[in-house]
């Protein structure tokens, strides 16, 4: 079995809008090894959620290849895709709206199991639900409660149990802790980590919180306006950031410590509209190191150190 679980090549997702073509994800390529975590970081509108969903074909990519264990899942029929999805699951951001309020925990967690006809016997299915609940730290007595009776942390545990029900290989975690309080956030992050070690899971971890991703990921990919601007192993990215956007992002994290007085790089303005983008570096309008040739085309992603890729004319 090869080490590479997922290989994404030239993935694009455009949306048609009345004002033109919205480039949500614009030609990104990356690969992900088994049992690793890839952190996908960027601000609202940078295309990280769209990437996460396109990889699972929850939204249909405009073009590109998604090789899962060497097989291009974009070519699968609806029926084949359905089978394939057992291996690829997702945990959503908002534990308040991603669970059906009319279903009990038992029904929510057992739905994928019965839908995919994994366990047909109802009694055995319930045993499996209880087993999953135990795995994610939900008390047995909660099996017949409804989501509204539970707090955010417990709800997110249900979301995790539902994703685990199919024994997937890959889980896309889309901001799984953003809606939670810090003390609960730490509980969920620890749980996800334990599960990864125990079940050999591979994660794509989408977040805007750099201190969380620093703790959680093996590799980090920074996105800006639908493109990858920098990708590197976590340590390398934090100690040796190269792209001006990465540097600004890192300097903007508020650190809960008084000993740390940093030089902040303030970015001018805000993310530009992703509609009808010109052929120039996407970050150029906000970049504090922008020079003339930055406007001459889209910078390619170049490997500067082993495993460290940067897309910037000025620094490569």
């Amino acid at each position: 079995m090869s080490e590479t679980l997922l290989d994404v090549r030239n993935l694009k997702k455009y949306f048609k809008t009345s004002r033109g073509l919205l480039h949500a994800v614009d030609d990104i390529s990356f690969s992900l090894d088994r049992n690793k975590t890839l952190g996908l970081v960027g601000e609202s509108g940078c295309g990280k959620t769209t990437t996460g969903r396109a990889v699972l074909r929850l939204i249909e990519p405009t073009s590109g290849e998604i090789l899962f264990e060497g097989k291009d899942i974009c070519k699968l029929s609806a029926n084949e895709m359905r089978k394939q999805r057992k291996d690829m699951q997702i945990i959503f951001q908002d534990p308040f709206s991603s669970l059906d309020p009319k279903k009990t925990i038992n029904q929510i967690i057992s739905e994928p199991i019965s839908e995919n006809k994994i366990i047909r016997d109802k009694r055995k299915r319930e045993d499996r639900v209880l087993e999953l609940m135990e795995t994610v730290g939900l008390a047995e007595r909660l099996i017949n409660t409804y989501p509204h009776e539970l707090d955010g942390g417990r709800r997110q545990r249900i979301g995790i149990a539902r994703a685990l029900a199919m024994e997937p290989k890959l889980i896309v975690c889309d901001e799984p802790v953003s809606a939670l309080d810090v003390s609960i956030q730490a509980q969920i992050l620890n749980l996800l980590k334990e599960l990864q070690e125990k079940m050999g899971l591979t994660y794509i971890f989408i977040t805007h919180d750099l201190s969380v991703v620093n703790h959680f990921s093996d590799e980090i990919m920074i996105m800006y306006l639908g493109q990858i601007v920098e990708k590197a192993p976590t340590e390398e990215l934090f100690t040796n950031p190269i792209h001006p956007y990465t540097k600004a992002l890192l300097s903007a994290i508020p650190i809960p410590s008084l000993s740390e007085k940093r030089q902040r790089i303030s970015l001018k303005g805000e993310i530009t509209s992703p509609i009808n983008l010109p052929d120039e570096c996407r970050f150029a309008p906000r970049c504090y190191e922008c020079v003339d040739h930055c406007r001459s085309g889209i910078p390619p992603l170049v490997e500067v150190n082993p495993g460290h890729f940067v897309a910037c004319f000025e620094h490569v």
Partner: peptide, 17 residues
């Protein structure tokens, strides 16, 4: 509260919720 936060200096430190 402090121990629940990921430490940006030491990424291997386990969170203590």
């Amino acid at each position: 509260l402090f121990n629940s936060l990921p430490n940006i200096k030491d990424r291997k430190a386990k969170l203590k919720p």
